[in-house]
Amino acid sequence: MTSTTLQLSEPFGQVSYREAGQAHVGVRATVVLIHGVGMQSAAWAPQVTTLSKSHHVVALDMPGHGGSDPIPAGSELPVFVDWLRAVLDALGLQQVSLVGHSMGALIAGGFAIDHPDRVARVALLNGVFCRDAIARASVIVRAEQIRAGSFDLETPLQRWFGDTPLEKQARKDVAQWLSQVDIDGYATAYGAFARGDALYADRFDKIRCPMLALTGEDDPNSTPEMSHAMASAAPNGHAVVIQDHRHMVNLTAPDEVNSALMDWLHMPAEQDVLT
């Protein structure tokens, strides 16, 4: 699955994405995948392989990640939401089934709130939601350190992975993606991630489409409590917690995550349109 670039409207430059599968008879809305801070579209490989058997799938490189151009330094979460709208417009996708992981979940949730007519369903994997004061202060300090040029590779890896063979392989892949990321793009995305956890939280009742909130039981930052709170706040929300897994659950528990996503994709959406 090779990467393709596409020119966006001003001021977003180019987006890089990976594409697989095609629309099948009776299958609605392209599945669009947005990764987390420091990752790239390749991190969705287990999901693309499975979902593309029955759906058209597009995995995006977030701004300043992979092959996508950066957005202005200091951009906050709404700019990333506007970026996603520009991407979907450029791809000619009127309505999508939207999946986001971590920072990608913040973008996906914000987009579903701001543009409900463009989202048939939304899945928020390892999303953050209304951190407590201690957690918020800690992540903001981390964002400031990254903005100042301090890039600690080992700390997130230790937090995200255990010692099973599958986790060790996933850790190796994630370490490679983190080592390749543009530090300025990483800093901008992490700053928006640090300050965006409550920005749309009081409007989750506006997400009327089927919403999946999924995380790992042992994720200390995107906690099961957060996923349950998001699901409770949305009228058609549903929470799934994957036992014995952490933050990179789409890589460390791909079968369980893919099964949950397939169930979510089969939930009826009121305003699906063919794309």
Rank of each mutant, 00 (worst) to 15 (best):
M1N: 08
T4S: 14
T5P: 05
P11N: 05
E19W: 04
A20G: 07
G21R: 03
H24V: 10
V25M: 13
V27T: 10
T30I: 00
V31A: 01
V31S: 01
V32A: 01
L33R: 04
A42V: 09
A42L: 10
A43H: 08
A45E: 14
P46W: 00
Q47E: 10
Q47M: 09
S52A: 11
S54V: 05
H55T: 00
V57K: 04
P63T: 05
G67Q: 06
G67C: 06
P70H: 05
S75D: 09
E76R: 13
E76V: 07
V79Q: 11
F80E: 01
V81F: 02
D82F: 10
L91R: 05
L93K: 04
Q94S: 13
Q94G: 12
M103H: 07
L106Y: 02
A112M: 03
D114I: 00
P116L: 01
D117P: 04
D117T: 12
V122M: 04
V122L: 03
A123P: 03
N126I: 04
V128E: 03
A137T: 11
A137V: 11
V139D: 04
I140H: 08
I140S: 06
V141S: 15
R142L: 07
A143Y: 00
I146P: 01
S150F: 14
D152M: 07
E154A: 15
T155P: 04
Q158R: 14
W160G: 03
D163V: 06
D163A: 12
D163E: 15
P165N: 07
A170N: 02
A170S: 07
R171V: 05
K172D: 15
A175K: 04
V181M: 06
I183P: 10
Y186H: 15
A189P: 06
A189G: 14
Y190L: 08
D197S: 10
K206F: 11
R208C: 12
C209D: 12
L214W: 09
P224H: 07
S227W: 11
M230S: 05
M230R: 08
A233N: 08
A234Y: 09
V240L: 13
V240P: 06
I242K: 01
Q243A: 15
V249A: 07
V249S: 08
V257T: 07
A260M: 09
H266E: 15
D272T: 13
L274W: 14
